[in-house]
Computed example of a mutant assay.
Amino acid sequence: MHLIYCFILFVTVQWSYVNGDCGVVSKSEWDGLNPAHVQYLPRPVDLVIIAHTVTPTCNTDQRCAELVRNIQTNQIENLGFWDIGYNFIIGGNGKVYEGAGWLHVGAHTRGYNKKSLGIAFLGNFNNDPLSSSMINALKELLKCGVENGHLTSDYHVVAHRQLIATESPGRKLYNEIRSWPNWMEDVSSIKN
């Protein structure tokens, strides 16, 4: 019996390390659908693409989960995605929601999905105020990603707008991330 307990503990610790939940609200917690298909993302990743959803904002757990579910439903039913396109989504409540997660290829930036993580902020940051809890949630997620081997220690952060024709992640969020030490101003070396 003791051997079985030790084995279960070992598997649990290994699973936690591989998935590195990092305090992320899991799909089961926000009542998300399972993906129709998955493709595994080679890790560690060295590129993080920051976007915004251009949806309403949210401040409560209930409203943020509802918005994430709506995005997933739209992307699966109307756009034909296998799952929600972002790897992670950050709500105005300062929580990070699991999308495709650390392990799976997302569908956030055509031509870059197989080599990056796409992280979206719920809202329109051309207009909406950016909260410190949202920024801190992203910083903690990235730190945890490095600690758990999902991101290289020298990963680069870029804005969605640097890679495709979009205003994403909005002026306010774009201005914020441009001051970060991992910011990549010149994307010519990675541009498709």
Rank of each mutant, 00 (worst) to 15 (best):
L33R: 15
V13D: 01
L79R: 02
Y86L: 07
G32H: 01
N127F: 10
L9Y: 12
N126V: 03
L41F: 09
I49Q: 00
A65S: 14
G94E: 10
K115E: 13
Q162A: 07
C22S: 15
M1P: 02
V54I: 05
D128F: 03
E77Q: 15
N127A: 09
D128K: 01
V13G: 01
T166N: 00
I89G: 01
E147Q: 10
G80N: 04
Y112V: 04
H52W: 04
G170A: 03
N182W: 05
L117T: 03
C6V: 10
L103A: 08
R110W: 04
E185K: 02
I190Q: 02
F88R: 02
Q72A: 13
C144I: 06
N136I: 08
D21K: 11
W82K: 13
I89T: 15
P181K: 02
M184K: 03
I84V: 15
T57C: 11
V96W: 03
H52G: 07
K95L: 15
V105T: 15
N124T: 04
G149D: 08
C22Q: 12
C64E: 11
Q14E: 12
T109V: 13
G20C: 15
L122N: 00
K143C: 04
H37A: 11
S28G: 07
D83Y: 15
R110C: 03
A165L: 07
N70W: 11
M134A: 10
R63K: 15
D46Q: 13
S131F: 08
L141G: 00
N93K: 05
N87E: 07
P169Y: 02
L41S: 09
L41M: 11
L173T: 06
S179I: 04
D83V: 05
A36F: 12
G149C: 08
G101K: 01
S189D: 11
I164P: 01
R171I: 09
Y155M: 05
V13C: 11
I190S: 01
E185Y: 07
G111P: 06
G145H: 02
L47N: 00
R69V: 12
K95T: 07
G101L: 09
I4N: 04
N93V: 11
L151D: 10
V38R: 13
A65K: 01
Q14K: 10
W102H: 09
C144E: 12
H2E: 14
K139L: 13
D154T: 14
I135L: 10
K191F: 10
H156Y: 05
P56R: 04
R69L: 13
R69Y: 09
I135A: 04
F7A: 11
N182F: 07
P129A: 02
I50P: 05
G101A: 09
S26P: 11
Y5K: 08
H104N: 14
A137T: 02
G145T: 02
L141A: 00
R43N: 08
S132Q: 04
R43M: 11
K114V: 05
N127M: 05
N148S: 09
R43A: 08
N148F: 15
Q72N: 06
I71C: 03
Q75F: 14
D83M: 14
L103E: 12
G85E: 12
G94Y: 12
N34M: 13
C144Q: 08
P56H: 04
F10K: 01
E167P: 08
D21E: 13
H37Y: 15
P169V: 06
W102K: 01
T73K: 15
G123K: 00
